[in-house]
Computed example of a mutant assay.
Amino acid sequence: MKYRKLGKTRIEVSEISLGTWQVGGKWGETFSHENADKILNAAVDSGINFIDTADVYGDGESEKAVGRLVRSRSEKIAVATKCGRRLSPHVNESYTPAALRKFVENSLENMGLETLDLIQLHCPPTEVYYRPEIFELFDRLKEEGKILNMGVSVEKVEEALKAIEYPNVTTVQIIINMFRQRPAELFFKEAKRRDIGIIVRVPLASGLLTGKFKSDTHFAPTDHRNFNRNGESFDKGETFSGIDYNLGLDAVEELKKLFPDQGNLAPVALRWILQFDEVSCIIPGASKPEHLTSNLQALNIPDLSPEQLAGVKNIYESRIKPLVHQIW
């Protein structure tokens, strides 16, 4: 495992870390603490030292599993969680310092921890990024010893660029993958200039970039890849990176031609992201230990060649960019 600096937090995090959305639900499976414990411990055994969760994953059960892991291991594990998505309705007006403070305190209780290494606003409405009083709250929480660092998880590049204007924002969690390339333009440049840690989520476009899906692949009714393809429940860009499923399958077939020796495209897709020096870490999820093993293979393959990088860029620009680039 290799480690990179998480921006101005100064925390050294594993290049491939772990996101726990899959562990916590919305992927067609009910939450299982036994399964969560297996995945989380396997992650730490492999050298992963940064775990990302959220209070809404498994209705708090994911946080409880992460807290149990941290308390049971001797290794130093950095914990990041998120707050805000419990607000109902999830609109700008619902965001108040008092509500967010309560969410942070609940997360600490869920995990049995006194301090969070990183707390992130969880994809709030765009208007929230223009409200200084929301961001000032996290200075108070830091003074009280409840958090060490504050960051944001965003849907759009516009939100990321606005967030990093606040001095206390240390990290941005954002979707970057072969089918979502816009952040690598202006945002990467500005993040590097401000020493912002970049945490990459949805790196495999909800599994599309594994190359294992087909037109008749079945997703369970409770899996967001079934019920949120058009943004029925949350931002469409979270599911298959906002790309039409069949269009994505066609683009993946083109990618396979670039990597004919790779039966599993996931390690290649993750390696592509790691070739950006601005990226601090990737947080692919895993709903079973084998998924974790697949993700970690990215550490053992060489960088993509200039010809392969050009091929990926061409597929994106010809098939994907005209439809999604300016949306997120």
Rank of each mutant, 00 (worst) to 15 (best):
F188C: 09
V202F: 08
I199H: 04
E185F: 14
R193K: 15
R182H: 15
I198H: 03
P203L: 08
D195Q: 12
A191T: 03
F188D: 10
E185V: 05
K189Y: 13
R193T: 03
S206I: 02
Q181G: 07
G207H: 07
R193S: 10
A205G: 13
T210G: 15
L186A: 13
I199T: 10
R194C: 10
V200P: 07
Q181E: 11
R201L: 05
E185A: 14
I198K: 01
P183N: 09
A184S: 15
K189F: 14
V200R: 10
F187P: 02
R201Q: 04
I198S: 10
P183W: 04
R180Q: 14
F179Y: 12
I196P: 01
S206K: 01
I176N: 01
N177C: 03
E190W: 11
I176H: 06
P183R: 08
E190H: 13
P203G: 04
R201V: 00
I176A: 00
L186H: 03
F187N: 05
G207T: 05
L186S: 11
R201T: 07
I199R: 01
I176R: 00
Q181P: 05
N177G: 01
R193M: 00
Q181F: 08
P183V: 08
K189C: 08
V200I: 13
F179A: 07
P203K: 02
S206L: 06
V200K: 11
F179C: 08
V200H: 11
R194T: 03
A205V: 09
F179H: 04
R180W: 00
R180A: 15
R193H: 03
L209E: 06
F187R: 07
I175D: 14
N177K: 02
A191N: 04
P203D: 09
F188R: 03
G207F: 02
E185C: 03
I199M: 10
L204Y: 00
L209Q: 08
L204A: 06
G207C: 05
L208P: 09
I199V: 13
R180L: 02
E185K: 14
M178T: 01
R194S: 11
V202G: 01
G197L: 05
G207S: 04
D195I: 06
L209I: 04
